[in-house]
């Protein structure tokens, strides 16, 4: 296992009030790869993901210890510019959460809040580029003023990804991005992730083991708030070193 580290998680502990949700997690996330986090419900995989862009800040009573280093900066320090962090570390959620507004406004929202609205033509080119990246441009180019909630769930999720790409992030976090989608749409999104891997570091949380096996390069298995095992996806799925991992992967529990 040799790779360039993009995110370095060091001795991370997280508490929800009294509850110890993440226990001493250490993880090096490889650059320009897809890293999957798997594990049974409640094992802390989503919580871990939400540490990387500080989304856990929105929950009352969360306390974190340890370090998460991105670009030589510990992003858990109080002085971290969360706005800039979230721009650089985009997130795609479980349910496609497009705003109840036009497709265009959904895309422009990010540019507006970060004061990056350019001239009309430049913005249009940017938007076209991102919609092309997620395979929506040909379908939607003539109906950008349509309400985004009228799209199919798969298209909505693609739009969510486009909305993130528009801000030119380097890291993308995906929190069970296919759990609301049917199997065909799921495959389409996975294909998209494979293409995007060239340019972005991605971390995907999934409860679907086949998805982790198909779509990721590296896999981390979590259980009860601990990272049990981390390695190349093929090895985790064919020759896990821990018995717990093997039991989970073979379906003994989960």
């Amino acid at each position: 296992m040799s790779f360039e580290t993009r995110i370095s998680i060091e001795n991370l502990n997280l508490f929800y009030g009294e509850f110890h949700a993440l226990k001493n997690v250490c993880l090096q996330v490889p650059k320009n790869n897809v890293t999957a986090l798997i594990g049974p419900s409640g094992c802390g995989k989503s919580t871990l993901l939400r540490c990387i862009n500080r989304m856990n800040d929105l929950i009352d009573g969360v306390r974190m210890e340890g370090r998460i280093v991105i670009d030589e900066q510990n992003i858990l320090t109080p002085g971290t510019d969360v706005v800039a962090l979230r721009k650089n570390v985009g997130m795609v959620f479980q349910r496609p959460n497009v705003f109840d507004q036009s497709i265009l406004n959904n895309l422009k929202f990010g540019l507006r809040i970060h004061r990056q609205m350019r001239s009309k033509n430049e913005t249009k080119d940017l938007i076209q580029k991102c919609l092309e990246d997620v395979g929506l441009w040909d379908v939607l180019k003539d109906q950008l003023r349509k309400n985004a909630r009228e799209l199919s769930l798969e298209q909505q999720q693609r739009l969510c990804i486009a909305r993130v790409l528009l801000l030119k992030p380097e890291i993308i976090l995906l929190d069970e991005p296919c759990s609301a989608l049917d199997p065909i749409a799921t495959l389409h999104i996975e294909e998209l992730l494979r293409v995007l891997r060239e340019r972005y570091t991605m971390v995907i949380v999934t409860h679907n083991m086949q998805q982790a096996a198909r779509a990721s390069d590296y896999t981390g298995f979590m259980y009860m708030g601990q990272l049990v095992e981390f390695g190349v996806t093929r090895e985790i799925f064919t020759a896990p070193r821990q018995e717990l991992t093997e039991n989970y992967i073979t379906g003994h529990f989960g």
Partner: peptide, 19 residues
């Protein structure tokens, strides 16, 4: 989920409320 989406894109509290 709308609020999460906005925060996830780096919006501040006020931007999320207003927009």
């Amino acid at each position: 989920m709308y609020k999460e989406a906005a925060y996830g894109l780096g919006a501040t509290h006020w931007q999320t409320l207003w927009r």
